[in-house]
Amino acid sequence: MSSQNTKSSGMMKKYKLVFLGEQGVGKTSLITRFMYDTFNSQYAATIGIDFLSKTMYLDDKTIRLQLWDTAGQERFRSLIPSYMRDSNVAVVVYDISSKKSFEAIDKWVEDVKLERGSNVIIVIVGNKNDLNDSRQVTADEAELTAKKLGASIFFETSTKTGHNVKLLFKKIAQLLPEFEDSENSQSMNDHDNSQVIDVAGDEGVQDESSCQC
């Protein structure tokens, strides 16, 4: 991992998360919901690569998440591999109401693996969970694909309602090396035992009490 060695120092440990996926699947919305707990229904395409960061307090530990929001438009694709290179987590987002965006996750994961090999946590996120009526991708199908692709986490979220968003980031944080020992979680390289969590539409699973983000 390329995160800086700042353990037990005044500086927080930093982790790089790169958000990938087709245009309009809600990558920026996901980040905005996590960062500011807001949602804007007006679509504004990301230009290039945006950067945001947030400190997360979890189990008496503090980490800094660097969130790299990539543009889904084709003309910016050439930039993205350079940002995958030193990422710790690749969050591949698709839209549950768009089969095409789901079909593209194979390619995104392939690109990530090409750049990082297995040295990265892959997270599959099915966004727009609130659009259940126009669902084109079932949770079971997505979960199966996530397992096949070696994803450590699979979540269905709704950035519009905020469903599962905080929990997603909490789970990601728990998989990061800083928390691995304490959480007794799996090694991120050990994809055979990957922790695929499907909490689609399950409000009861959410436990955000200990996550002060």
Binding site: M11, K14, I49, F51, S53, S78, P81, S82
Partner: peptide, 25 residues
């Protein structure tokens, strides 16, 4: 060359955001 220059500039981008974060801290 696109990838080469892209990598270089992405690295600089990472350095910039890291330094800004340190400065803000």
């Amino acid at each position: 060359p696109m990838r080469f220059i892209g990598d270089m500039l992405a690295s600089v981008h990472s350095l910039i955001v890291s330094e800004r974060e340190i400065l803000e801290f």
